[in-house]
Design a protein around this nucleic acid. Sequence first.
DNA 1: ACCTGAACACCGTTCAAGT
DNA 2: ACCTGAACACCGTTCAAGT
Lengths: 216, 216
Amino acid sequence: MARPRKPMLSRERIVAAAGALVDAEGLEAVSTRRLAAELGVSGPSLYNHFRTKDAILEAVADAVSGQIDLSMFDEGDARDWRTALHDWAVSYRAALADHPRLVPVLARGPGRRPAGLRVADAVFGAMVRAGWPPAQATRIGALMRYFVTGSALSSFAQGFVDDAAAYDPREYPHLGQAHLLAEHHHRVDEGAFETGLRALIDGLALEYERQRGAAP
Amino acid sequence: MARPRKPMLSRERIVAAAGALVDAEGLEAVSTRRLAAELGVSGPSLYNHFRTKDAILEAVADAVSGQIDLSMFDEGDARDWRTALHDWAVSYRAALADHPRLVPVLARGPGRRPAGLRVADAVFGAMVRAGWPPAQATRIGALMRYFVTGSALSSFAQGFVDDAAAYDPREYPHLGQAHLLAEHHHRVDEGAFETGLRALIDGLALEYERQRGAAP
DNA sequence: ACCTGAACACCGTTCAAGT
DNA sequence: ACCTGAACACCGTTCAAGT
């Protein structure tokens, strides 16, 4: 078969297939041979389009970053920084929660990924425009990433086994209900995210007022 | 050689060697063959002591959870819930930051790991004792884990490449200084963690007062 | 330029064989 | 009980060969 007159692969097709495979079966399931089989080619063919398997995953990650809504940071948008930050975090988490198994790749940071850099640029720019000193704006970008990636990386509630016998009341006197967490993981994790996000932004607002008071 | 009269391996030796290997070279470097070689045995020998490679990593993770200070949650401790939560988060992060490459394993939750369960038990019990409703105490445990694992999983600052040319000012008008982040990553990430932790706890204190005011 | 099969140096895990 | 080598079904990546 050798070289077809019409290429069988493209970067787009590879990224789409890799994304679907990660979502369906997880990062471990993505092998070059498996991915190539899904695309109807042999393993080494992928190396005509990407330098390494990791570069494929980076491209998938950037596609996910591209789903994050940034419109709340537009110059013309009327939302104040608290509301903008909240709405952005919700969209950020939603994009990651759609592809939880990709979060370890996204957590590596933007690197040279364009969509990742656009996110960092938008939030930093908006916080500075709202009156935060640049060093604080950087910290806000960082701490929001900690919180959102942490919440999307793995379910808190699903981290507890579904088996009442696992929680010996003599060892763990307060975990008598922990075996119920897994069943309600959606509610628990959503609630914790909302509570945490609210607390984070309320706390930042306090800090903002302190700085306002101190500065001229 | 077959079976020696004195066993060559023990769970403890395997866990110690695996931990050292993860710290030195990362999770990807831990293969059963590599680990066995480090211990002077052949690969399959490990299966006499652990059912799978993953069980070895779980054991390493539990050893790290065992390093987290929980004394601030003791009944006799005089710290109020805000201070206790702060001091715990600092110790929690320090334990994880000592072994950042293990964080993806720790982020899976306690599962059946005893040290992981002790942490969950202590923080939940202390929050309830401080007056938080159980559902809120659960959320606090969850959101703290989001924030701490997110901050330990990967450096925010090191997620940006060290190359000024990567930040085209026409594409990313606010990232003119981003190439300096990697150089100061320690300061940046520490500062963001402290700012975020303070904001989180200040925000929770506001919520606590609201509940106090609303309840009888 | 873009695909192929063969090859290299790896994986996790099982299992029969040894003591 | 606890170690071994052989084996199975995999890996990521390189490379010469094909068109």
